[in-house]
Simulated scan of single mutants.
Amino acid sequence: MFKILIIEDDLKMREIILENIHRWGFDGLYVKDFNQVFNEFINYEPHLILLDINLPSYDGFYWCGKIREVSKVPIIFISSRNSNMDIVMAINMGGDDFVQKPFSLEVLMAKINALLRRTYDYMSTEANVIEHRNLILNLKDSTVSYNDKKVELTKNEFKILYVLMKDKGSIISRDSIMRSLWEDENFVDDNTLTVNINRLRKKLEDLDIENYIQTKKGQGYIII
């Protein structure tokens, strides 16, 4: 699970962001003691940081510099300061993106997802295949095989099966699967997911494997 550290002085703002992060299935933590920002970063080991410029004691530029001394973790600046100088300073200090307040939570989450994808290739540290119950998903050519049969999967079919096989034994919600199908800010709706699930099931049936993906009504899908 990706961990996101929020360094934001506005209590209401950071609680709203934290709630939204949790809704997306990420782990989140916000800094309470702004004299301990660096220690919070070291102890929490986040995959991404949301960093305001205006902070007590030291500003966001200072903390960005301190973090960049030891880590390349993605940093998104979130600030009401929007002069060209502020944006240039944020990027020069090591920020990866800049979001101006007030902002849409949907836009912020799209940027978070895009930056996480660019930074942590979800297949980069995996083996070339995933196998479960003799079904083999090839991560290099997006094919799935069972016994002596093999079929090709579309990009969305592949991602759905990857998510379900990677967390086999766990119920994966429809919302979680739809989020995995996003490409940058292109939204995948509920109907698109249903169509892709049905096509994927048909292809698995063509391999002579039935009921591989089970529906948990009102909860999502699971591979057992």
Rank of each mutant, 00 (worst) to 15 (best):
K166D: 04
K72F: 13
N147S: 14
T154L: 06
L164S: 00
I49W: 00
I91W: 14
I67V: 05
F103Y: 10
D121F: 08
I112N: 00
I78M: 12
M165N: 03
D175Y: 07
S57Y: 11
Y62G: 01
C64G: 03
F98G: 01
I53G: 00
E106P: 02
D96N: 08
R81H: 11
R81P: 01
F61N: 03
S71I: 12
S124R: 15
N138P: 03
I171C: 05
Y62R: 01
T125V: 15
I160A: 02
S145F: 01
Y120C: 15
M85P: 03
D175A: 08
W63G: 02
M93L: 07
K150M: 11
E69P: 01
H132D: 05
L50P: 00
S71Y: 11
R68Q: 11
M165Y: 12
F158C: 15
D167Y: 12
M85G: 06
D121Y: 12
V70K: 12
Y122E: 09
I76K: 05
M89T: 06
E157S: 06
L135N: 04
R174H: 12
M178C: 06
L105N: 11
K150G: 10
S124F: 08
N54R: 13
R133P: 00
E152R: 14
Y122C: 04
V107E: 14
D97R: 01
L153S: 01
S57C: 08
V144I: 08
S145W: 00
R174C: 15
Q36A: 08
S79N: 05
Y44W: 13
M178T: 07
R179A: 03
L51Q: 00
K149P: 07
L181V: 03
N138I: 06
T143N: 05
K111N: 11
I172C: 00
E126M: 10
D96C: 14
K149T: 09
N43D: 07
L181H: 03
L108H: 09
K159H: 11
N84S: 15
S142C: 08
R179L: 07
I160V: 10
L50R: 02
M93H: 13
A90F: 02
P56F: 05
N92Y: 10
K140W: 11
N54V: 13
N43K: 15
W63C: 00
L135Y: 02
L48N: 01
L108A: 08
D52S: 10
E40F: 10
G169Y: 06
I75H: 01
I91P: 02
L105V: 13
T119P: 05
L137C: 04
K140I: 15
I136S: 05
N138S: 15
I112C: 00
M85D: 05
R68F: 09
V107P: 03
I76A: 09
G95I: 00
S180M: 07
K66Q: 14
K101H: 09
F103C: 02
R133C: 05
D175S: 14
Y162H: 07
D148P: 04
L105F: 08
I75G: 03
L161K: 02
